[in-house]
Amino acid sequence: MALGLESASALSSTARNAKVIASNAARDKRRNVLIDAISRPLSIIAFFVAWLAITLFNNNVHQMYNPMLIPTPIEVVEAIIRMAQSGDLFNDIVASMYRVFMGFLFAAVIGVAAGVGISKSRALSNVIEPLIEMFRPIPSLAFLPMLILWFGIGETSKIVFVAYAAFYPILSATILGMMQIDPVLIRAAQSMGASKRDIFLHVELPAVSPSIFSGLKLGFATSFFVIVAAEYVAATSGLGYEISNSRTYFDIPTMIAAAAVIGALGYLINVALTALERRLLRWNPKYNGN
């Protein structure tokens, strides 16, 4: 009886200990979250404060450089508001995003199809891969002036350019993903009577989808990156055009404003893509904190 009581109390003390440990862990986690929430925005806040302080000091106390060269953050915000009110902001965003999405779409379709084809067919790989390897090291920007001569300064040249630049990361990720498919999954499907077509549709495509998604994200980032350059050279609209056009008027606040809008758009789209990725690939332990 005494023994029974003792072991019962030992048990409850173990349970109590477990509870204490769990609640400590939860408290540590909460504290870490709090520390992160406070410390992470610090550098960004410091950056804007420093920017404001330096420009205000330069403009009002002691001039160290021509105030036109570095506007205050307030002037940049004013420039954004001005662009928004005139309707330029909306038009520029639409123009740039149209080119990015169209180019990206072509790159995605062609990149994934070529990646799968190269992985599946030795003949295709022998024919196409050397060609791709020849062109890959040439920065895509090198082709931009030629593309403008070939396709004019309309939308086509920019869409082709974006598609070309975004094609490579999508292609590479697809080929890599196809190579990494676990062969035992294919055997498992075969031993259930799967045909080649079944294996492609129901094993290889889902198995390669995380790699394709990383490739698409990378390709999208590339599209975003190159569209600005394309709009410097040959465009009459778009955020890149806005930057290069403002340069001729020495309108630095607008140049910074356009760059900031590009950054914000890129960030938001990446957040959306990551959320989509987590949703579509929720079976992947990578997205579940393991």
């Binding site: 676990d182 035992v184 999954l185 498992a188 031993s191 009577g193 989808s209 079976w283 992947n284």
Partner: peptide, 15 residues
């Protein structure tokens, strides 16, 4: 399909 296989490494489709 008439010879079903069970593998040591399970070979479940993770998706």
């Amino acid at each position: 399909g008439e010879r079903g296989m069970v593998f040591q490494e399970y070979a479940l489709f993770p998706w």
